[in-house]
Each structure stands twice: as C-alpha cells, then as structure tokens.
C-alpha cells in the first residue's frame, strides 16, 4: 500500500520530532532538506509492502546462535587514568557534566 503521490511520505513536523528524539538540533533548512530526502527513502521503503510477509519470522541474528554466555569470573578492569584522560571534563575521578535541569 504505497502512499498517494500527492501526500509527502514524511511531514516537516515529523522530521522535527525525530530530530528531537535523535538529539540533533537541525536548522530550518536542514529540516526542509531532510523532509524531502528522508521522504524519498521512506517512499522507496513502501516497496516492501509488495512482498507477502505474512507469518515470516524476522531475522535479528544471521547466524542464529543462542545461549552465548560467559563464566561469572572477574577480569581486570582498565586503568582509570587512561579512561579519564579521554574525557572532556573530569573532577574527583569522575566524569563531569553540566547540570541536569528540569528534574526534581
């Protein structure tokens, strides 16, 4: 069931909403551009509806392995200094971030 041609596959509002979910701050121009570009990919994706998929199981793991687990044995952790050396901001051996607002 393809979308009628007159209707865009994706609205500008949807793009703006998705950008928020994806934590991306898009410009108005980017939203316009993505509305068109993502819309055309999504239109193509509607081709998938041409295939009868009734009762077809999804593939999540190509090899179909199950029950891959490890023993509950402690392995050495990595050096804290090496980890923290890559952090943008550190205080008291912890990762420092701006305050989380909007919370009580």
């Amino acid at each position: 069931m393809a979308e009628p041609d007159s209707q865009p596959a994706l609205s500008r509002d949807e793009v703006a909403h998705v950008a928020k979910l994806a934590l991306l701050d898009l410009t108005e121009e980017e939203i316009d551009l993505f509305t068109v570009q993502l819309g055309s990919v999504i239109e193509t994706a509607h081709d998938m509806n041409n295939l009868d998929l009734e009762g077809v199981q999804p593939t999540h793991h190509p090899l179909g392995l199950t029950n891959v687990v490890r023993e509950d044995v402690v392995r050495p952790s990595i050096d804290r200094a090496e980890v923290l050396s890559q952090a943008p901001d550190v205080e008291d051996d912890r990762f420092k971030v701006p305050p989380a607002l909007g919370e009580d």
């Binding site: 998929l53 077809v56 199981q57 999804p58 593939t59």
Partner: peptide, 11 residues
C-alpha cells in the same frame, strides 16, 4: 519499517 525489513532479511 524496521519490523518489515527484518522479515525481508528472512525472505
């Protein structure tokens, strides 16, 4: 979208 695509992989 995601769900159908994963079914197509099986196909």
């Amino acid at each position: 979208f995601y769900g159908k695509a994963q079914q197509i992989r099986t196909k």
